[in-house]
């Protein structure tokens, strides 16, 4: 190539080819993006929950964006158990205070971070959650302690609208 002079024809080939490739590539995006979550899915992005019916030691599961969210009113033993753990023992170190805005209320996405099963509550070796699919054990703060899951149970964005109501999302 280098010993031949660049001709008008070379220039036309390259510009035509480049524009065709760029045009084709830009057309790919609509075909890819149509699969992303659509406007109607995104519109269901927040859920409000009334906390009054939940007694200490009880949990409820609500659906947020098609995912289950565990809301647990923890007992004092569970809270102290969660706070007593040294961070060195955790595969994904996180302080309990960073996971529960109000220590009494633990709000987290109820999906095992391994492959998406729903862990069972108050089970497993750490008295927290246990995923029956591939055997991940979570503690009373929803932190991974043992098993294949890589991270702690996810904490969604939520705010306390007042003492009795939270808004997830």
């Amino acid at each position: 190539m280098s010993d031949k002079p660049v001709t008008r024809r070379n220039f036309l080939y390259i510009t035509t080819g480049t524009f065709t490739a760029a045009g084709a590539a830009s057309l790919v995006w609509p075909f890819v993006d149509q699969m992303n979550p659509d406007a109607s899915v995104k519109a269901l992005a927040s859920t409000e929950v009334d906390l009054r019916p939940i007694a200490p030691g009880q949990s409820i599961t609500v659906l947020w964006r098609g995912k289950p969210v565990f809301i647990r009113r923890r007992t004092t033993e569970e809270i102290s158990e969660a706070k007593a753990v040294s961070l060195d023992e955790l595969p994904d170190p996180q302080d309990d205070a960073a996971r529960a805005k109000n220590p009494e209320w633990l709000v987290m996405v109820g999906i095992c971070t391994h492959l998406g099963c729903i862990p069972l509550g108050q089970k497993g070796e750490y008295n927290g959650w246990f995923c029956p699919c591939h055997g991940s054990h979570y503690d009373t703060s929803g932190r991974i302690r043992k098993g294949p899951a890589p991270t702690n149970l996810e904490i969604p964005d939520y705010v306390f609208l007042n003492d009795n109501t939270i808004k997830i999302g």
Binding site: V32, M35, N36, P37, D38, V41, R65, G66, K67, I111, G116
Partner: peptide, 17 residues
């Protein structure tokens, strides 16, 4: 995964595709 699901969990969009 969100792209595959067309949402934030397995649901109708995934079933259709």
């Amino acid at each position: 995964t969100n792209w595959l699901w067309g949402g934030y969990a397995v649901g109708s969009p995934l079933l259709t595709r």
